[in-house]
Write a protein that binds this DNA or RNA. Structure first.
Lengths: 335, 335
DNA sequence: TTGTACGCGTTATCAG
DNA sequence: CTGATAACGCGTACAA
């Protein structure tokens, strides 16, 4: 690999002069600058960012931690982050945790060792105490699609209560009286918020609130299928289900299919996230859309602003969800 | 951030001793080693990999270039790469190109500047001449799910000809005589291979080969819908379509729906890739499955083997595809 | 405008 | 077994 020393030798100048030329410094004559720049190009010089980072204390990369890159929800966030980072010349180190806390901590250490300039945490498992440690580490970070109870940390989220309301009210407006809720893990903020909005709406409307019709599982299709089977094979089954994400909804759809229930005739179904496949021809899932890519962009740009010194002290962005009505919801059939 | 110098001072030894302790070197007494290790832990020391990378000439990270992380096909590959890298203590820098060649080159330079240890190219746009340059750069790389004509480069692919055969023969076996093919970009190797297998099967079986029934588009649902509309609204329409990936197939499904055609009654449809959503309740797409995650793992492990000195000179892995028959294919209706 | 000298945090080499 | 010392490639005060 060619270094600035090589260029310096070839050009008959000092390495510092080459450095100045390559960094477009004003304290160098225009002609030597251009001469050196051309030479560098011709020699195929690529700056060593390890060395530069060592000096400047900044490597030019962001760390992104997500639970699962296969999940389109996080894929969209990732895309937003990556776009924003790329536009500003930064790299993105991708870390997936599978929801495993140990792995998350392991990755966090890896990223610190690599001296990334900032962290974007779209993961959910990390406990508050660890976040506290992170705050001391001086490396800027931002929470995406999650909050932290004890810690005051910058975040960008979508208003889950509002989203939960949109979904539940839509079902109630259609005339449903027997509405169940299927969430992700019960310790995940989003799960709880959507559930609490669901409860609030039911109680406002004077609809029955059954304990057995509030289920927490995990944010996967398999979990949705299992819960769906259980929920829909009871003698008294709900006429509508609000699922806390689209994957769960798809699993429930699968279970309904198995049990010979037609959607939306026998069962109305609302999901959450509007992942790309919710709009598929035969799926046509009614769902709550979140601006996921935008979340990623906002998060990345905030961290980069902090890194580059325009110090936004904090960030508390709450974006608005949007109900997307498709074909899995209808008034309840006469039964 | 605490450095080895800080630890050295605190322990009353030289920095080099600390370095030896932290690297578990044998040329240090067991007791000082342990003492220093404990001290480092207590001080919250995290090694600076920029400095380490500078002297060792290796940063401990892989660069991964994919066209689009939203596409489940590449998300799966990414997952495989990330898993393998994590297990061996490496990070992954994610780069998405949107199929834009300029962006790919830009990223390639970024990754070189960051001195990643190896490259995994799941992108398709890069031209052979550029690969040639890459070979000179001494940084090991591997092609995933693509080949290069002129250059002898390590690769891991799935046998597209075999996959194309599986799909086309399945349709022919069902009795279809009017089979169309919809590919991705015509300059993509996978597209061409699947198409050529399609042609071979048709000619072997003595089935009519219509020029208008071979269409190249792009690997997206939108493209599939457009092509589907055109193909299916002709007076003489095919009774079966082999789509070169699942997204295209889904688009075609959408178009068929719009035109009032039932699947598989009026139209049989085979996709390619078996992305997670092909198995969805109402989609149930017959498709050709590729071991995507495995490809990612094999690719990453190969590059890492090279990096770590166990020098596999080359890699030419051809994995086998698998036909997954679901509910979008059936014998042609009487017409 | 340019060159010199030093430091960033680590590892490796060579004495001791 | 341990301690100096140099080197990795670059940026930057300081001197010229």
């Amino acid at each position: 690999m060619v270094t600035i020393k090589d260029i310096a030798k070839a050009a008959g100048v000092a390495p510092s002069t080459v450095s100045r030329a390559l960094n477009d410094s004003p304290l160098i004559s225009v002609e030597t600058k251009r001469r050196i720049q051309r030479l560098a190009q011709r020699l195929g010089y690529e700056r060593n960012e390890l060395a530069r980072g060592l000096v400047k204390g900044s490597f030019g990369a962001l760390g992104l931690i997500v639970p699962d890159i296969i999940n389109p929800f996080f894929a969209e966030i990732t895309k937003g982050v990556e776009e924003a980072a790329r536009e500003r010349g930064f790299g993105v180190v991708l870390c997936t945790t599978e929801g495993d806390e140990a792995r998350e901590e392991e990755y966090l250490r890896l990223l610190q060792r690599k001296r990334v300039d900032g962290l974007i945490l779209a993961s959910v498992t990390l406990d508050d105490p660890y976040l506290q440690k992170l705050q001391h580490s001086k490396i800027p970070f931002v929470l995406v699609s999650r909050l932290s109870k004890g810690i005051e940390a910058p975040y960008v989220v979508v208003d889950d209560k509002k989203g939960g309301r949109l979904a539940t009210e839509h079902l109630a407006d259609l005339g449903h009286k027997h509405i169940a809720f299927v969430g992700g893990p019960s310790n995940v903020h989003a799960s709880r918020e959507r559930m609490s909005a669901y409860r609030a709406v039911l109680s406002e409307r004077g609809l029955p609130l059954k304990r057995e019709w509030i289920v927490f599982a995990s944010f996967t299709q398999e979990a949705g299928r299992e819960v769906g089977r259980r929920l829909l094979s009871q003698s008294e089954r709900p006429t509508a289900i609000f699922a806390a994400n689209d994957l769960i909804a798809l699993g429930i759809m699968e279970a309904a299919e198995e049990l010979g229930l037609r959607i939306p005739d026998d069962l109305s179904l609302v999901g959450y996230n509007d992942i790309a496949y919710a709009g598929l021809p035969r799926i046509q899932l009614t769902t709550v859309a979140q601006p996921m890519r935008e979340m990623g962009q906002i998060a990345a740009n905030f961290v980069l602003d902090v890194v580059e010194g325009r110090k936004h002290a904090s960030l508390a962005a709450v974006l608005a969800p949007r109900l997307v009505v498709r074909r899995t919801t209808a008034p309840p059939g006469r039964s």
